[in-house]
Amino acid sequence: MTVPERTARPTREELHAWRTFLRAHAHITRVLEAELVAEQRLSLGGYDVLVQLAEAPDRKLRMAELADAVLLSRSGVTRLVDRLERAGMVARERVAGDGRGVVAALTEQGLDVLRTASRTHLAGVAEHFVARLDGEQLRKLGDLCGQLID
C-alpha cells in the first residue's frame, strides 16, 4: 500500500484522526494504570518492565535494552528499576567480563507479582479495548498501527 504524498500541514480531518488516536491511547492507558495501582499497587510502567524481563533470555536485560523496550529514557528506567529493586521484584547484576555492564534481572518475587498483576491487566485490556471492537476492526487497527511503527 502506498501512502499519498502529504503537504507540510495536516488537514483538519487528519488532525482530528491524530488527536482522537492520542486521546484514545491516553484514556485506555490511564484506566489500565488505575486498575493496576488499585488492585496490585503496581504502575503500568512497572508492569511493562516486569513483562519485558520475563520475556527476555534468562529473564535479564541490560539497562539500555530495557529502556528501549519500555520506551523510557535511561534515567527514567533507572529510577523505575530502583523502585522495583527496593520492592524485591528486580535485582541488578554485573555482566561477566564487562566491568561496567549491569543487567536488570527478574526475581522470583517479581515473577510472582507479574503473574498476579497479569490477571488484572489482561482483564482490563479485554474490557477496555478488545470488547469495544469486533475481530475485523481489531485486525485493521493492528495493521494500521503496524504501518505506523514500520
Rank of each mutant, 00 (worst) to 15 (best):
M1H: 09
T2I: 14
P4F: 02
E5A: 15
R6M: 10
A8V: 07
P10Q: 11
P10M: 10
E13W: 01
E13H: 11
E14F: 08
H16W: 03
W18A: 12
R19M: 03
T20E: 15
F21V: 08
F21M: 11
R23W: 06
A24H: 09
A24P: 03
I28E: 13
I28D: 14
R30N: 14
V31M: 07
V31T: 15
V31E: 11
V31F: 03
L32A: 12
E33T: 14
Q40N: 13
R41I: 05
G45L: 02
G45S: 07
G46P: 01
V49T: 05
L50R: 02
V51F: 00
V51P: 02
V51H: 00
L53R: 04
L53C: 01
A54D: 10
A54G: 09
E55N: 06
P57A: 05
R59Q: 09
K60L: 00
L61I: 01
R62E: 06
R62L: 06
M63K: 06
M63Q: 01
M63R: 03
V70C: 05
L72H: 07
R74Y: 08
S75P: 08
V77D: 08
V77L: 07
V81R: 06
R83S: 12
R83L: 11
L84C: 11
L84W: 02
E85V: 04
A87S: 14
M89L: 13
V90D: 04
V90H: 03
V90I: 05
R92K: 15
G97L: 09
G99S: 12
G101L: 06
V102Y: 05
V103H: 00
V103M: 06
V103Y: 00
A104H: 01
A104T: 02
A105P: 03
A105Y: 03
L106F: 05
E108G: 15
G110F: 04
G110R: 00
G110D: 01
L111V: 04
D112Q: 15
D112G: 08
V113W: 02
V113H: 04
R115W: 08
R115L: 09
R115G: 11
R115I: 08
T116E: 13
A117M: 09
H121C: 08
H121V: 04
L122K: 13
A123L: 07
A123P: 05
V125L: 14
A126P: 02
A126D: 07
H128A: 05
H128K: 06
V130S: 10
A131M: 04
R132N: 12
R132H: 10
G135N: 14
G135K: 06
E136R: 12
G142Y: 04
G142M: 02
D143S: 04
D143L: 01
C145P: 01
C145M: 14
C145F: 10
G146N: 12
L148H: 13
I149H: 06
